[in-house]
Design a protein around this nucleic acid. Sequence first.
DNA 1: TGCTACAGTGAAAGCGGTTTCAACAGCGTG
DNA 2: CACGCTGTTGAAACCGCTTTCACTGTAGCA
Lengths: 332, 332
Amino acid sequence: MSLDEIAKRANVSRATVSRVLNNYPHVRPHIRDRVLQAVQETGYIPNAVARSLVTKRTNMIGLLLPQDARETFADPFFAILIPSIAEACTVHQRYLMLSMVTLNQEEGFYQSVLRGGHLDGVIVGVSMFDDPILPQLIQDGLPLVLLGRHPYYPQAHWVNIDNLQAASQAVSYLAAQGRQRIALVSLPASLVAGADRRDGYKRALLQAGLPIDQRLIIETNGSYQAGQAAMSQLLQLDQPPDAVFAANDPLALGVLHELQNAGLRAPDDVAVVGFDDQPSAAYASPPLTTVHQPINDLGFKTVELLLEAIDGQFSAPQHRILPTTLVRRASA
Amino acid sequence: MSLDEIAKRANVSRATVSRVLNNYPHVRPHIRDRVLQAVQETGYIPNAVARSLVTKRTNMIGLLLPQDARETFADPFFAILIPSIAEACTVHQRYLMLSMVTLNQEEGFYQSVLRGGHLDGVIVGVSMFDDPILPQLIQDGLPLVLLGRHPYYPQAHWVNIDNLQAASQAVSYLAAQGRQRIALVSLPASLVAGADRRDGYKRALLQAGLPIDQRLIIETNGSYQAGQAAMSQLLQLDQPPDAVFAANDPLALGVLHELQNAGLRAPDDVAVVGFDDQPSAAYASPPLTTVHQPINDLGFKTVELLLEAIDGQFSAPQHRILPTTLVRRASA
DNA sequence: TGCTACAGTGAAAGCGGTTTCAACAGCGTG
DNA sequence: CACGCTGTTGAAACCGCTTTCACTGTAGCA
């Protein structure tokens, strides 16, 4: 069923049907009603593809996730972020295309996704410094928002939290309690957020007049198991830490678990602070002190920034920084 | 840049360019080369929307997730399933549209997504018996595959595991060890899978000659915290259980945690079996005995079944059942 | 009353591809 | 040599919508 059919049924031209459907003014009420009735009767839904062909808008935005997206999904950060983005899309009447395509994997397919005109814009769940897709993407000129700042692409819009500041605050909090040997269980340094949180950790130590001890810094892949392993390793040091800043909550929970296995207690023996404030953090034993980041807002703001970018509202790159807060529970 | 431009550049007609691009036979090699060279030089990518308008194919499939998708994403089952589906789409050169739209929420938007011609077919991450979207969807006639069987819609294709049989096997395993009071920490009965696993539990009890004790059956929302709460409740019974079958792994891990809190040990005091075999199950303490389901395969088979359905290969509804295995670790 | 301005409408031209159809060349055959 | 194929190509129609443009009719105004 097409426009023509409605047009015939309502005894008007296709142009008029189109006007009614798109809420143009300058259509006389009784004509509008006739059209709407025909639409009602037939259950007509306009063909989105045909519409897109002429309007150059698909109302579809892409969410590009990193190659290792399988691990990504296990991360509670993404488990909250992705539904937020999806919801934001629905709220704004946009469709969401999920893509885990990588450059090396399927060059041609990647090209056709991104440059085939299917997408109005793209959100890049970027993270790595050297993501191979980014350069192409940015050159393509497709409206784009990065989820997280990226030092190499100042011209790109992004939404982020202040990872450095947030991490610094968490570590300062530990230092203020008199903790002397504060360990860092970190994310991969290849991630921008990983590097930022590490830098925040170091800055806080220096500000507190504490030394930076490389043996207290353990780089991990960010998983629960890695947290366990890291803590286990830290406990074997001659001088084990009296506090741990874990760069995300899964790591922190792993750390807590390993402490428990070793017969140690948090915060008495070792204070632990996490990052993310994932829902289960409050239910850990002991409940986890952690940096809360507004993941939901992050998703919404990112979508909204992208939509504004698609509308061409900006001449300069936009950088939105959302606030974090340290949530004090029992673990530190 | 459009077909015309390539046509002019290669000094052929648009039809010929189209033929080359779609690998038609009957194009003389030197003409084909000329066209390909023009494509190369210009970096031309055909407009997918225009193509879709005439071919009636968008190469895009939808993944419809339930209303409570936010919880859904926290479930490791979906954390594995969704990337699998995404990967299967990439492998088969299809795009994936993620949708959490619900009927009540945005009727119009829902309609335009599903009936606007954007989608070649839909995977429904169905679960509830009375999902309000399903009737419409099935009537719409859009190619569709359910993720999990549904008793009310025999005409729909689906891919599933045999939940009843798998649960039954797990409980029989406990009974064979001489466990007398086997509790069930179940999923909501409003979920088909929840009901199936509960029925399997009951069947195994009856087959083992054990009574069905309603006090030993606790219905939950399937979360880790719910598992803790359920176990806590079970331990307050006059005669607490000596085994627990948890209907998914988060529940089982919560149960284990609560046992530990109560100073009890698994499997000595209470044996615990889970369901899913999520990656972290092997790292639990004790490592979790659980029903392994091939979530990855589930994702791939579902996509492949949908693609076949889109090709119109079936006259009868297809039901694919994938095998499960009980993975014996230390918790039971 | 005669003009202008503008609201309201339809015809038709795209959007960028695919596909049908007809035309033409070159070939083997009777 | 006429004929019918087959292989190869281009012209043009078409997919279903939006949007421009031109054309009415009517109201407002001098």
